[in-house]
Structure formats: C-alpha cells, structure tokens
Design a protein around this nucleic acid. Structure first.
Lengths: 335, 335
DNA sequence: TGTTAGCACTCAAAAGAAGAGAGTGCTAAT
DNA sequence: ATTAGCACTCTCTTCTTTTGAGTGCTAACA
C-alpha cells in the first residue's frame, strides 16, 4: 500500500513511468529494488498499476488513482485544515466575482477551471417593474434575491396608457413578488392571465418573457479560465486532444452536463473526483475533473470544476477548492 | 507578377514551399521550370519571396503578401459583389447577436474570430430610473439608444423617502435624458450636484455609478470564437505559439488594443489587413489579422477581427467580413 | 533577347544501424 | 521475507546513409 502511494506520488510529480530503483532509493521504506519489483508485480496483477511497455517503469491505472484519491479524501476528512488565505476581493457584481474566482483557481492550481453561475430556482423575486421605453416597447426589470438582475425588452402591439401600465405593475407585483422562481409555473401564469382581464394578452407576453429571461440564462452561464494551462502537461498537449479540450471550454455547452451531474450527486463534502473515463464529459478520458458544489446564501448552488491531467495534484486541488468555497461564502455574506 | 501570384496562391493552399516545377505544370502560363526559376531569382532579389533553405521551394515574404493583398483589395473595389447569404438570425439582445456573429464567421472561415461590442460614447440615454430594492439599496436602470441596458445596485447610507426618490428621478431625467454618453462629464456632474441641494451626496453617488457602469463595460466587452481553429494550421499549432494565442483569446485584454487601433485608423472600406509583424498584437508575428469596423445605426462602431496564419485565404475572409457587416446593419434596423 | 534542356550540386527529411541504459523477471543465496 | 546477481527486453538517442525535390548555371535554340 505504501508502495502504491509512493509510485503514484512520484508519478504525479514527474509524469514519467517510475521504476523500482527510484522507489527504493527515494523513500524511507528501506527496501531493495528487487523487493519493490515483487510488490509491483502484485500491484499490477491487482490492476492498480500498469506498464506502458515491458522495459519501462509503472504508471498508475485509473483504479490506482481511485484508490489513492479515496484514501486522501478520507484523510482530509479528519485533518484540521489550515491554509494561507487566497484572496477573493469583494465584487458588487456576481458575474465578476465568479470570473475572478475561476481565474484565481486557474492561477493557483495551474489547471483549467470553470464555474457555473448559481441556480436561481429557489430564490425569490425581490423586485419587478415594467417601464415604457418607447411607444410600444416595455422594459421589464427583475431583481432576484442575491441581487441578480435580469432585463428584457418587450415589444407590445397596442400602445399602453400610463394608467394601464400602473395597473399591470401592481398586478404583477402583488402576485409575483416574494415568489420563488421555481413557483412561476404554468398554473400560476394561467391564473394571472385570467385576472388580467382585458390586458390578458400583454400579461401573457410579459410573464412569458420574464420566465424566459430567468430560465434562459440559467442554463448556460459558465465562466472558464486557464484553458491554456493544458499545454503545461505533455500528455494533454498534442494537437488532437488540445483542440478538443479548448473547444469544450469555448463552447461551454458540454460543461453544463458536468454541472447537472455534479449538482445531482450530493455527498457530504460537496467535492467529487472524476478520474479518466468516469468523467461525464466526452473526450476527457485522459483528464481528471474535480468538482465542488458551492452555496451562496440560501440554496443558490453552483458548481466549480477543475480540469487537469489524471496525474493532477489532487491534494492541492481539493485544498484550493475548499478554501475558495469558504471564501465565496464569506464574500457573499459581506455584500 | 503573374508568377508571384501563382506562388502565393499555391502556398496559401498547401502551406508548403512551392518549387518552379509546380508553377510550370499547374498554371496556364506555359513556361518551363527553368524560366520560372529565373523569374523566381528576380522576385527573391526584390524581396517578395524567400527560401527556407537552399534546396527548398519559395514562400512569400511579408512584403510579398502585402503586395498580393493590396492588389486583391484594389480588385475587390471594382468587383460587383455577389454572395450567398450567410444568415444572421434576429436576436433581441445585442450580446447574443455579437456572439452569434463571431461564431458564424469562425465556422465559415475556419479562423479564430473576435468582435467587440460597439462603443456607446455617441449614443444617447433613452431611459433612466432609480428604484428602491431594499431599505438602503437602490437599483439604477439605464437604457441607452440601441436598447443596451445597464444596471447597478447602489448602497446608500440614509434611507430615502418615496418623495425624495421621485424628486431624484425627475432631476436625473430632466438633465440626463437624451444626453449622449460622452457628454456626461465632470462639469455636468458638478452642476447637477449643486442643483440637488440636500441630496447632493446621493446624486453624486448615483451619477458616479452611472458613469462607471457605462464606461467600465465599454472597455472590455469582446466576444471570441473558433480559437481552436488555430490547430488546423501546423505553423501555429506548436505548443509555445498555440498556448500564447489561446491565452490572448481567453484574456481578451490585448484584443482591446487591436480594437482601439482599428477604430482609430479609418479607411474607405473599413477593412484592414495586418500581416505578420505589422500586427498591433504581441506574439502574432506568424499571424495575419483582418479587421473591419462595423456600424450599427448612428455611430455605434465596433470591430470585428479575424485571426489566422499568414497564409490565410484573404479573399474569402474579406468577402465574409463585408457580407457580415452588411447583415449586421440589416438585422439591426429590423430591431 | 527571352526561353529551355541538361547537369552538377545542395540540403532537409526519411530510413536504417548501432549502442546505451533504464527497467524487468527470475533464480539462488541470505 | 528480502536481496544480490544476471540475462533479457525494448525504447530512445545518436550517427550514417540514402533519397529526392529543388536550385543555379551553362549552353543551345527560336
């Protein structure tokens, strides 16, 4: 077991297959290379390590990494964490805070990072207002708990009087204010439309637009950083792979899959590790992904992901993630 | 001259140094390779082509490309343009329209693209409203010509009465509505503050925030697409270069330089070509950049850039750009 | 005078050959 | 159980050879 750890540790650092002699010399096990070789043969039979070719050293298999990671996570559980503060500065806008977070993590870990904007489903509408901008254009402003602001411009067919507009505003506010985003569903909308009477057409348009505005963004707001870090790891940097990875980061569409998967699968710490093929993303067989679910205030959950080679420094990554999660929380409370 | 064109055309396609035999066989000039060789020697002396090594074919020098591009642009001037429509769909939000544009160009040209959000300096404020969201939080919504919407949340110290808020709104609207963004400068702000009387503190905060909101974004809103296209061109795809390029696209900071440069340097068509070292960007010695200045409505100017290898298909790129510019204009008018 | 055939020459890139060395598995001894 | 010793394997590096596309120059030709 110690030997497996030693092999993996060494491989994490160097990225080169590691031989029996190296282990024998650079650990405090005081075993000769021959002994190590015997053990290695066993470990290989058990499927934890493998040989790229007969006369090369060993590298960890996915199963080997898995064992190692599980072990480490268990240790972390007990460990009292103490870390130098990595600093997130206060930001008045959520998107900037998230961008900053992604970048910070990328710089500190040397891996590629992503962060999804928190889901707003459980959040309540705090403020809602329709204003006329042009004769037949309305501006709808919606503020959601956490000071997330959404706007839409609506084109309306008929010209609205000031009075009508006022009525509409009152109607909308009475019914929607304080309501959670997830509660704005079809029955509610239908009910509202009925109450609107002559203005039902407008109401219909408005509400649909509001629902749209909230949900549309919710799918896709993902910020990434440090994509070019992949070039630091030869095993990811060949054209084929690099191109695919860069594309995934640019498109971001696939990353939403990762977000969904992560949010679905709850565990105690909120941190999950996907090694190689375990990953929910395509073309990531040679990568590992560490994800964390962060929470801002009540129920605003989002996902942070760190993507690097399988031989990433899991220990450091997990520490960084935990640290950032704590800070995100702190910064948010200050706002 | 015909020979230079032939050499460049061939090199654009293949990316390989081109020899005399190739030219002699695959053009309708009906000249033997020996003749071509003589001409080539002359062209080399004039500095339009060069030899990677003695026993290789020739590749165009920057000067060669320049000559070729100038020639082509002059021809384009006269040419009646006729192109299949590349379709931009109507989008109610400007940012989505721009993202779509970038992506479309990237897919059609197979190069990396960027597009900057139009500058709003000459645009007028169309709508401005302060609302109370919490006891001591104000929401400022600003709509600018072209339906660009900005919001800021302001923390205020004292709690404002409804009446004060109303007054503030009136004051702000009377003075700022219809004003161009560039006109909101220090003297104006000072004048306003004076008029505000007891509320001068708030006014001060509000106006500063408004100015901030408008200008802050103005610097940096750049959308990119197709960064991974660079892997399609071996001369750009080695680790060093690729990493730098990808970084430039991700950071976007440097790209603002390009935008400024382009907007400053006016020419008739609005299209500019930077070859190799001519580029205003660092680390782009092996790239060419074609930029265009687009205009949405009155004075909302922005920049589109296409970045590829020096042997990019300038012809196709220019056509695509012109086409997209025309469509951007059309789509915008529809809005 | 412009064009072309012919030929010797150059040089990068591909192919082949040789050697080094890191690492292994197995056996026999401690 | 552990280890020293040894033959064996196979990649990687280095060096050499071969190949071939392309050149420049000269001499002949229209």
């Amino acid at each position: 077991m110690k030997i497996l750890q030693a092999i993996i540790r060494n491989y994490l650092e160097t990225g080169e297959p590691v031989g029996s002699r190296t282990i024998s010399k650079y650990t405090d096990l005081n075993l000769s290379s021959a002994t190590i070789r015997n053990e290695m043969a066993d470990l290989e039979e058990m499927g934890y390590i493998l040989q790229p070719h007969t006369s090369a050293g060993r590298i960890p298999s996915d199963a080997g990494y898995r064992l190692y990671v599980d072990l480490m996570m268990a240790e972390k559980e007990r460990e009292v964490e103490e870390m130098k503060e990595v600093l997130l500065e206060k930001e008045d806008r959520l998107d900037n805070l998230l961008k900053q977070t992604a970048k910070l993590l990328a710089v500190n870990t040397n891996y590629a990072t992503m962060i999804s904007a928190p889901s707003l489903y459980h959040n309540k509408l705090k403020f809602l207002q329709l204003s006329r901008v042009e004769k037949n254009q309305l501006l709808a402003v919606i503020v959601i708990e956490g000071n997330v602001i959404k706007n839409t411009i609506l084109d309306v067919d008929e010209v609205l009087t000031d009075e009508t507009l006022l009525k509409l505003n009152i109607l909308l506010n009475t019914h929607l204010n304080g309501m959670a985003v997830e509660e704005i569903n079809l029955p509610l909308i239908t009910a509202l439309k009925r109450q609107a009477g002559i203005h039902s057409e407008i109401i219909s348009e408005v509400i649909d637009a509001v629902a749209e505005a909230i949900k549309a963004d919710d799918n896709l707001e993902i910020y990434t950083s440090g994509a070019n870090n992949i070039f630091k790891y030869p095993e990811l940097a060949d054209h084929q792979r690099a191109s695919e990875l860069i594309n995934t980061f640019e498109e971001k569409k696939e990353l939403t899959e990762l977000v969904k998967e992560t949010l679905a699968e709850e565990n105690q710490t909120g941190i999950q590790v996907y090694i190689g093929k375990e990953s929910p993303l395509e073309n990531m067989d040679d990568c590992s992904i560490v994800t964390a679910t962060y929470e801002l205030g009540e129920g605003m959950k989002g996902t942070i992901g760190i993507i690097g080679p399988k031989r990433m420094d899991y220990d450091k990554v997990v520490d960084n993630l935990k640290n950032v999660m704590r800070q995100l929380d702190a910064v948010y409370r200050k706002d």
